[in-house]
Amino acid sequence: MSKILLFLEPLKDGLKRTSYEVITAGRNLLDKSKNSSEPFDSMIGILINGTESQANTAKDYGLSNIILTNVSNLSGYSSTAYAEIIKDAAKENDATLLLFSGNATGLELAPRVAAKFEAGYTSDCVGLDIINDEIVAKKPVYAGKAQISIKINSDVKVFSLRPNVFTSVMAEAPDLNIQNKNLQIDDKFCKVIVKNVVKNEGKLDVLEADIIVSGGRGIKGPENYNLIENLASAFGGAVGASRAVVDAGWRPHSEQVGQTGKTVSPTLYVACGISGAVQHLAGMSSSKFILAINKDKDAPIFKVADYGIIGDIFEVLPKLTEKVKKFTGK
């Protein structure tokens, strides 16, 4: 029987939220496989250059085996080195199903690992199930305008999961067995190296936010963006922007949501003065709840909205901001 290998990433005192999502997705597949003709034996996590206390947090999500690999000769993250380490771990543990988060790291790393096995790979999955003994993934295509069901035919199967779609669920593991591994990696695998990470100062990124408030052409100019920022701050969320706003130079590209920007799945997406062009919908239509504010009652954004306020954003936003503040007691 083969295993499921989960790629886990450290963050502060624990793991990235997306890593707990990957553990939960792995656990679900492991459970479902028990009724199939080829059940998985177990699942195992791999955490590279993390600590035991970080690894220990995986126990709360039901993981009972982790390989804690310490690479002494890496000065920073290296996709080529990590791919080699993960391939070796998969081989040593007879893992045939490999799960990654579809975050920036996973989207770059997972296909490299898949290629080492010349395996099939499916990125950015929003669903994983076992149907008729086969793993079937659901994946948005054409910028979310359609969704495919897809299966991998090779023996080794690699998937990455869209962040914030697979909800992490806690479950106590009987015991967490941490397998420490110290190694040195050959220089030929260290041809790419991250020298530095520059954080956007003091700003919550749309990819990490639970609530996003975005502005569109309706905001009329960069000088009015404080209305968007104030509402985002009242919600404790991040500031986003439509393509029109970014192309006009009012906001940086890092805030752009949509087909040529970022694809986000927050719990709440607030679209202010955004008409809802198909390219914008592509980037945010998998949000759990959508609130739209627009003075045009026929704007397409209302067709995908859970909640809508028909009105001028210059009047609605200050009112809404005050009322949210009052409600949340801020």
């Binding site: 099939g120 790979y121 359609a146 969704q147 897809i150 991998i152 239509s285 995908v304 909640y307 609605v316």
Partner: peptide
């Protein structure tokens, strides 16, 4: 070899609450 096979395609239709109110 064909490494992946698409077995279905659909147009996602998320049921939205659709509570659209005034200002």
């Amino acid at each position: 070899d064909t490494k992946v096979s698409v077995i279905g395609m659909e147009i996602p239709s998320r049921k939205r609450i659709g509570k659209i109110l005034s200002d």
